[in-house]
Amino acid sequence: MRRILLLDDEQNVLSALKRSFRSIAGSDQLRIDTYTVPQDALLPLRDSAYDFILSDYHMPSMNGIEFLTLAKAMQPDAVRMMLSASAEFKTILGAINEAEAFRYISKPWTQEELADTYHAALQKRDQVLEDRRLADELRVQRGQISPHEEAMRRLEESDPGITKVKWSADGSVMLE
C-alpha cells in the first residue's frame, strides 16, 4: 500500500488534493493522511513510513521548508514536495536546497501536472528503496554489515521505530 502525507492549512485544498490523488491512483491501494497543522503532521512520521510528503509553503506556525526539513530528518527516504501559490525564486530555492524537495507544485495545479508528479514521486521512492536494498546486499557480501543488520534496516524502512522497542524484564513492551 502506498502512503502519502499531505499538509496544508486550508482544509479545502487538502480535500481537493485528496480527491485528485484518489482519481489518479485508480485501483492502487492508497492511504492519504491529511493535516492542517504542521506539528500534528510530524507525529505520524515517527511511526509510519510514507512514500511521499507534500507540504504547503505558507502556514501560520511553520513554513513548508521548515516542515519538510524536519520530515527529511525523520524519514530521509520519503520523497518530499512543496506546494505553494508563491512563485518566488527564494521559496523554490529554499525548498530544493534546505528540504531537498523533489518537486515544486504551484497553486493552482492541473490534474495532468499532479498525475505526472504522483507517478514520478512513486518511481523516485521505489528507486531509492531499491538502491538501498542493493547497497545493503553488497555490504553483507563484503562483511561490512551482518544479514541481521540488513534485515533490521528493511524492517525500519517499512515500520519506523519497530526496531527500537523497549522490553521489560518479563518480556512485555514498555510504552513511554
Rank of each mutant, 00 (worst) to 15 (best):
A101F: 06
P108S: 13
Q111L: 14
W109H: 04
T110M: 07
H148L: 15
D8N: 15
W167Y: 15
R22T: 15
V13H: 11
S27K: 15
L138C: 02
S168L: 13
R103G: 04
L14I: 01
A49N: 04
F21Y: 14
M82W: 00
S106H: 14
G171M: 06
E149S: 05
L175H: 01
E98F: 05
E149C: 08
S172K: 14
T34M: 02
S23R: 15
F67G: 04
L83I: 05
R31S: 14
S84W: 01
R3A: 09
F67R: 04
F67A: 02
G64P: 08
T69M: 03
W167R: 14
D77V: 07
I92E: 13
I145L: 03
I65E: 14
R80T: 07
L30H: 13
K18A: 10
R3V: 10
D28L: 11
I162T: 13
A78L: 05
V165S: 07
R19Y: 11
P160R: 03
L134H: 03
I4T: 05
E176S: 10
P108R: 06
V140P: 01
A99F: 06
R80A: 07
V173F: 02
S168C: 04
A115K: 12
A101L: 05
Y35Q: 08
A169N: 10
L129P: 12
D8I: 08
L43V: 13
W167E: 00
I105R: 08
P76R: 04
L134K: 09
E100M: 09
V165K: 06
D47E: 08
L5R: 08
D8F: 09
R153W: 03
R125L: 08
R103T: 07
V37L: 13
R139A: 11
M74S: 07
F21E: 07
L155R: 13
T110N: 00
E98R: 12
L114W: 00
E176L: 01
V79L: 00
A121G: 10
E113G: 13
K72A: 06
T117E: 06
L17S: 13
L45F: 09
D131H: 13
L5N: 08
